[in-house]
Each structure stands twice: as C-alpha cells, then as structure tokens.
Amino acid sequence: MKDMDKSFRKDTETEFPLREEMRPRTVTAPDGQVIEIDPLRDYFCEEAPKVHRKSYSAIVEGFYNWARANSLWILGFGTGCGAIEMRPLMTPRFDAYRYGIQWRPTPRQANLLIISGYLSVKTLKRAIRAYEQMQQPKFVVGLGSCTINGGMYWDSYNTIKRLDDYLPVDLYIAGCMPRPEALLAGLMELKKIIRRGEAEGANKYAENFDWYKANQKSVIKDWDMPDYSW
C-alpha cells in the first residue's frame, strides 16, 4: 500500500543540489562587514512542533469544541480535480456558509485543510508547508479516492497513494469525484468528530513527527525547507 516501489522513492544515494537562494554563502554588507549566511538555518526556525494539551476543564474544552465545530475555516487551497467540487458549496445551491463554514485565503487563519483529490509529490511539498503554518487545532479532510489509495492514479510515477502517511487525516470522503452533497455530509461528520473531541490530528502529527517527516522526505526529492514550517 505504501509508496514503496523503487522508481517512486527518492534516490538517497545521489545528493540533490539546493536551490541557489538556499545555499550557504558569504555576503559583504554595505558597511564592509563580511557575513556568513546559511539560509536554512538563519531564516527559519528549526524547532519541532509541540503537543498542545486540551483545556483542563472538560466543560470548557467541550464549549471550545462546539465553537470549533461551528466555525470551520477552510484554507482556499485546491490540489486536484476535487477543488471544483468545493465551489458549489459557496454558491446558492449548496451554500455551506449557513453551517458556519467559510473559506480563508491564508493558512494562518484557517483550521481545515481539504486535500481535494490527487496529490502530486510537487504539490505535497506545498500542502505540507500550508498544513504546518496553520494554527492548532487543525483538521485535514481527504477528498476523493485518490487520497485513500491513489484511486485512478495508483500507477502514477509522481502521485502519492496514501495521504495518511504524510499528514494526519481526520476524515476521508470517498468517491471519484464525490458530489457536493457528499462533501457537505462529510463536513457535517467532521463537525461531530470535533464535537466529540476526537479531532486531535495536530497533536498526532507532533507526537509522530519523526515518522511523518521520514515518510515525507522519502518521496519529496528536492527537500530544501526546514523540517517544520512555522
């Protein structure tokens, strides 16, 4: 099931050159001082994510979970063909706004990342960055069969098969493609999961950080970013 075959996994023998702007270099400042710059170390925070505890009081946590469930902000980031199934949710026919579901343009303000369809390795890199920049608690929904087992992209040389190996998925919506009704039903199901306090994907990600990173790095060929994008 895992993306194990040799043609797909990264060739770990040969070094992949860093992008030019990521290479360490020496720069002469305007005042004549010579500075060593290692972009990956200097520009980014290397710390690993933390596990964030629930609130001490069960009543408070329940209240918070109710608010989280009724104010789902989706990151406006469409990865595959499923992105087009999200548009009808914004318009009169399916109108998801009445359930407290909104779309936000920046990962900082979003709580829900919908991986809407097949995820090529190139997009996986961006999806990981977007996911890591979201604030806890955050949820991931895999939309369509391609996120479950690769779907029609089973044989693809450049598409991941199991999303759960790379990001902690809270809910899958099966189908190729699922119709907007299915998407809406899935979001209602996600609300129930959040209400029950079981949507702790961000903590799962932090706990099993090494495992997720190893999986991610085994397929992303040009890994030139910090381990966790704060």
């Binding site: 608010a67 104010s71 009169p92 109108d95 706004y97 009445r98 604030q135 608690p137 704060w230």
Partner: peptide, 28 residues
C-alpha cells in the same frame, strides 16, 4: 447572501468565530 439567493450565515456566527479564534491553542 439573500440578494445572491443564498441562505447566509447564522446571525450569531460572529460570536462563534470570535470564540473559536480565542480558543486556538497555538500562537506565533
């Protein structure tokens, strides 16, 4: 929303959004 033919957000949505944002666990 009604002009656009949608039902629109619940009238108390602003309160829930506010509470949700305060309830987020991590900050940068």
């Amino acid at each position: 929303a009604r002009v656009g033919g949608r039902y629109g957000i619940p009238i108390w949505q602003n309160y829930i959004d506010l509470l949700k944002n305060i309830a987020l666990r991590s900050k940068i």
